[in-house]
């Protein structure tokens, strides 16, 4: 869509614990209540481990979660 939100680690330089290789920014779909959203996050190119920075979890994710929940 040409407007993918991208999140980098809040700070630091990161290695995958399992594969011992640096995380790279990569596109990944995330899911919630029958909706899917694309986002670019730090990922391990080998095993797919994906890091969700705190700023994303407590920012946009929280907003979108509460928008979709009929609480």
């Amino acid at each position: 869509m040409g407007m993918l939100p991208e999140y980098r680690p809040d700070q630091g330089e990161w290695l995958c614990g399992r594969c011992k290789i640096p995380l790279e920014q990569g596109k990944v779909p995330v899911f919630y209540l029958n909706s899917a959203f694309d986002v670019i996050l730090p990922r391990c190119p080998q095993c797919g481990f994906t890091l969700v920075p705190k700023s994303l979890a407590q920012g946009k994710m929280l907003e979108v979660e509460s928008l979709l929940e009929e609480k």
Binding site: M1, S35, F37, V39, K60, V64, L67, L68, E70
Partner: peptide, 25 residues
Amino acid sequence: LRKLGAQLLWYGDKARFDFDFCGLL
């Protein structure tokens, strides 16, 4: 509508839309 709102919120910059997200919330 909620789904659309959530998509806008996810992909867009809240400030750039004339869309009442807080009302939707």
